[in-house]
Design a protein around this nucleic acid. Structure first.
Lengths: 241, 241
DNA sequence: TGTACATCAGTGAACGCGCGTTCACTGATGTAC
DNA sequence: TGTACATCAGTGAACGCGCGTTCACTGATGTAC
């Protein structure tokens, strides 16, 4: 049965701007609290009920803004990726464009800095997948923001002084070459492959530090990371600047 | 009040061998079931009750063998580290001693092979720390088994043809040098540091693959890993053999 | 070899807990005339 | 500017669930003599 009140929906009218705005604000407020709890207790401990409790609301109220727990988690993952991406973009933008290695270092240090100060958020996006949670496509897109920064550095450096490498068509086949080439236009396959290796190394180093695998072998994680960054920079041919 | 029956405990007598043996067997049987469930559903979903259910026992029965859930988890972590370590040892032992790079490759591939076939076990030991769980010292020891293999390769290669490196005392300070030097006797600090970078990269690559961060950029994970292994080998100066 | 008894392995009921989600509802807010 | 009413935001009780852990217990097993 169609009542008068369902007409707007059927005809595709939008809710009024004012109402949409307050809804967005409220949703954002929920997210902020959830983010704070995530930072404090980690993703596994995060529950809708605790978020509501923390806001002084009933748990059912949250269902106005998120269909279920997974949707809240997705929003937090997006936030984390964007937070990290923004931090990296900002840090990298401070360095003169032609100083490729410095740009790389700055971006890398920003990755570690953000991660060390947001360990639970880091674990959420780079640790073991949350059980029973399937990351929707949209998070994959958000994830690229950081790598785009790194890719651009490699591409810029490569345009400035193209690497002299033997043709290695085999590398194209093992990569998603279209996507990779789009992120690093004009970069030789071997260099592109090394670039992927480089950020694998960067995030590997952060994971090892945060997840405790350097206990007993690395004393000064910050300096070790810097040294690792230089090694990663070497890998992609950034040996000066 | 001290009864006759508590005397053995007080005097430190051991329970009879026979009884100890069956207790050990039963404990092992619990662990095997737990391991199967871990492999199937992951660590977060693992509960004492489900293990008991799966064994057709009451959940309280498990408290004969594990004081609580954390202790079971610790046992599983130890098992996982040892499983991985054994797989790597076996693979590496098949290669002639003087073929350093082959040994490295073989060990690295074993790491990936084991990880791909045991993703939940991998996540348990190399993913985000389990919430509310503090890894006891004993797991740190078990964790070294794999790195010991890699360290020996680097040490052997280094003894055969010592790297010509400038002295870099700074690297000692940022590492736990005593432990590192013990694992790789006679290896120059810079090489030792690079060795740590190398296995950071190996595990970083496995994590990226298993945790979905290569989606969209890497098509053939196995071949990408092999290429990454060669890059890691280069890092520690293993360019032939 | 037989027996009394201590020890062990496992049971089943119960505890309190926190969770995600649903649902009928009430009071507040904004809109249309 | 005032009013009737649709829509929204949030409530509170309830659902069923599975969890870790405790405890008094029973029957089985192994031991000491």
């Amino acid at each position: 049965m169609i009542s008068i009140s369902t007409l707007p929906v059927i005809l595709g009218w939008m809710p009024s701007e004012k109402r949409a705005a307050t809804t967005a604000t409220n949703r954002r407020r929920v997210l902020d609290v959830a983010q704070r709890l995530l930072a404090r207790d980690g993703a596994a401990a995060l529950s809708l009920r605790e978020v509501a409790r923390e806001m002084g609301q009933s748990s059912s109220a949250l269902y106005r803004y998120f269909a279920n727990r997974d949707e809240l988690l997705t929003a937090l993952i997006l936030d984390a990726y964007n937070d990290l991406g923004a931090a990296v973009e900002t840090a990298e933008a401070l360095v003169p464009r032609l100083k490729y290695r410095s740009r790389f270092r700055s971006a890398a240090r920003a990755i570690r800095q953000w991660s060390v100060t947001h360990p639970h958020e880091y674990a959420l996006i780079f640790g073991s997948p949350v059980p029973g949670y399937a990351a929707p496509e949209v998070t994959v897109v958000a994830a690229t923001r950081t790598t785009v920064v790194l890719a651009r550095i490699v591409a810029d450096a490569s345009a400035h002084s193209p690497a002299r490498v033997r043709p290695t068509p085999t590398y194209r086949q093992m990569l998603e070459w279209d996507a990779v080439a789009a992120a690093m236009p004009g970069v030789a396959p071997d260099v592109a492959r090394r670039a992927i290796v480089a950020w694998t190394l960067l995030f590997g180093a952060v994971s090892f530090e945060l997840f405790g695998h350097y206990v007993g072998s690395v004393r000064d994680s910050a300096r070790m990371f810097d040294a690792t960054v230089d090694t990663a920079a070497e890998l992609v041919g950034l040996t000066s600047g």
